[in-house]
């Protein structure tokens, strides 16, 4: 296999190197890529969409359709991870043994064969491999998480003016919940964001995006033509584009947030949602 791999690699590399000889020089301002389409984007973005960040404008408006499917890709990755890994209760072979920890004293109780503890304030359910979370990490993260989340929302909201946008903000937002899961444990994170909520949020995020597009369709414009929203938002069509971009960025953010958490939950617990990383 190694030799085959080497041969394939060398052949492909040789082809690519051969072809690269005909490229325009690197960072050449006169290359076709820099002179054909991009000048239009650079020069017209502001007047057509009133968004200074050209990347955001192109991403969410000129090529908004790509981005919608990009979000869908993420969504489907989440669904696939869930579909592949999540072990439903029916599939579990035997009634599980449950462990409960007395919160104040740290005494652990083991209940066999699916018996449940009556709901009680003093006990929390834990898993067989439970380890007490580290105090420093826990406290440190507790303080940091709100700021991480705030920063994430800032990134989403300021996608027009600075780098960032729905996707990056969504990832950071998701990361903050993952951070919670890492610093405490998975159960805590799942309690705060239940699986059902995540599953629905995922879909809702993409739905905001696609639904905005479909709304444009209903307003007698082409799909994703945000200028159709002008009438709804009571602004001029160009500002409507800008707002449309913000709306879809929010959708992207929600979808990505939920999906990242979803994937993490499934991967780190191999679908059992008991004990994560």
């Amino acid at each position: 296999m190694k030799i085959i791999g080497l041969i394939i690699t060398v052949v492909t590399g040789a082809l690519l190197i051969y072809a690269a000889a005909d490229f325009p020089a690197w960072s050449d301002p006169a290359s076709p890529a820099s002179t054909y389409l991009s000048p239009h984007f650079i020069e017209k973005t502001m007047e057509e969409t009133s968004v200074p960040n050209i990347v955001t404008a192109v991403l969410a408006d000129y090529r908004g359709f790509d981005t919608m499917f990009e979000t869908t890709v993420i969504f489907s990755a989440g669904v696939v991870c869930f579909f592949l890994l999540r072990i439903s209760r029916r599939e579990e072979e035997e009634p599980e043994t449950r462990y409960y920890r007395h919160v104040l004293t740290g005494v652990t109780i083991q209940l066999k064969e699916g018996y449940k503890m009556p709901p009680s304030a003093d006990f929390e359910r834990i898993d067989a491999v439970w380890t007490p979370p580290d105090l420093i990490i826990k406290t440190g993260c507790r303080i940091l998480i709100p700021f991480v989340q705030l920063f994430a929302l800032y990134v989403i909201a300021h996608g027009h003016h600075s780098p960032g946008g729905g996707f990056q903000g969504g990832v950071i937002l998701g990361a903050s919940v993952i951070l919670l899961a890492i610093s405490h444990d998975l159960r805590t994170a799942v309690r705060r964001m239940s699986e059902k909520l995540i599953g629905i949020l995922c879909a809702v995020g993409v739905f905001i995006y696609a639904g905005t597009g479909a709304l444009c369709l209903l307003l007698k414009q082409n799909f994703l033509d945000y200028s159709a929203l002008a009438g709804v938002l009571h602004v001029d069509p160009i500002t409507a584009r800008s707002h449309g971009i913000l709306i879809v960025e929010i959708g992207v953010g929600i979808a990505v947030l939920a999906t990242m958490i979803w994937i993490y939950n499934n991967i780190s617990s191999a679908g059992r949602y008991r004990q994560g990383l």
């Binding site: 960040n53 990347v55 955001t56 991403l59 990056q168 950071i172 990361a175 890492i182 993490y264």
Partner: peptide, 19 residues
């Protein structure tokens, strides 16, 4: 490519390593 860098920072450095 600031936007790409941002994405790579959040995805590559953060989430995918965690995954």
């Amino acid at each position: 490519a600031v936007d790409v860098a941002f994405t790579e920072a959040s995805v590559g450095a953060g989430v995918s390593t965690v995954f």
